[in-house]
């Protein structure tokens, strides 16, 4: 069957060339890349083991501590504690902790990579023009497409799952870092220049702190997107709650899928609460009123 569209160039040959090129990369660089990502793998595994080995109440206490540190308010702390215990009651504690480990790693790496890119975009219009379409593509390309090269490079496992998650989840951090810094009051930036701030001092004493609420909104979105990736990532060996959902599909067990799905929802709420209460506190610091 042909579509009748004139064949100006040979797509099959192009496809073959691309595959061959990629295969060469896999053959030559596969092992090196695996070694490079070994520490990351160790980190995720360590985090996962740690969260699973610690008694549940220690983990709950840890989360409460972090929530308090983020927002200095009691209500979110209580909400987080209750939701975590619900996770335990649902019987998916260990799976949830595996998911938390992968998600945290993905979020941390997204921030570590995304923040500098966002900062770079905010300072250079040319870089921004170049990056925006790339970010659009990253967000609209079906996620499964990323899985192929990553699985080829690393084989099924946590690392390709992590990398695919990062590619999918990183755009909001980058976009909102760029946006946040560009929205900072130019007079305040000018004041810092007038007092002799170097570009780096301008960035860290004025631009990043004042862009923080926006950057936090980006990090929050990134966390949510990372969480939404867990089911798909579990297809290539991420494990955790996503794998339970996957099993539910394979075995046609409604209960298994539903419980694991609920667990993902609970995790989403927990992380959203933490991020939001932090965001609110930062925001309040910037616009304090009254005495």
């Amino acid at each position: 069957m042909t579509s009748g569209f004139p064949e100006i160039w040979d797509t099959r040959a192009f496809g073959r060339a691309l595959d061959a090129a990629f295969n060469t990369i896999v053959a030559n660089w596969g092992e090196t890349l695996e070694t490079v990502f070994m520490p990351v793998l160790r980190f995720i595994q360590g985090l996962e083991k740690g969260l699973q080995v610690l008694p549940w109440w220690v983990v709950v206490a840890l989360f409460c501590f972090v929530t308090w540190g983020a927002g200095r308010r009691m209500v979110p702390v209580a909400v987080v504690a209750v939701l975590l215990m619900l996770l335990g009651l649902l019987g998916v504690w260990n799976e949830a902790m595996a998911t938390v480990a992968l998600m945290l790693a993905a979020t941390i790496l997204s921030v570590v990579i995304g923040l500098p890119i966002g900062i770079g975009m905010s300072r250079s219009d040319r870089m921004r023009r170049g990056m925006l379409p790339v970010l659009d593509i990253m967000q609209t390309m079906p996620i499964f497409v990323y899985l192929i090269p990553f699985v080829m490079l690393f084989g099924p496992g946590k690392i390709p799952a992590l990398l695919a998650t990062i590619v999918f989840a990183i755009p909001p951090v980058i976009r909102l870092t760029d946006l946040g810094i560009r929205q900072v009051d130019l007079e305040i930036v000018e004041a810092s220049r007038a007092f002799g701030a170097s570009p780096r001092q301008q960035l860290w004493t004025v631009q990043v702190p004042l862009a923080m609420p926006t950057i936090m909104a980006g990090i929050n979105q990134t966390t949510m997107m990372a969480l939404s990736m867990v089911v798909i990532a579990s297809m290539i060996g991420a494990g955790g709650l996503g794998y339970q959902v996957l099993q539910g599909i394979q075995r046609l067990e409604v209960s298994k899928g539903l419980i694991a799905g609920l667990g993902i929802v609970l995790l989403a709420i927990i992380f959203d609460r933490i991020a939001q209460s932090y965001g609110r506190r930062v925001q309040a610091n910037l616009h304090r009123e009254g005495k």
Binding site: E187, A191, T205, L286
Partner: peptide, 11 residues
């Protein structure tokens, strides 16, 4: 320098 709209660091 002193600025018209103060330009203090709000944080």
């Amino acid at each position: 320098m002193v600025f018209q709209r103060f330009a203090l660091l709000p944080h």
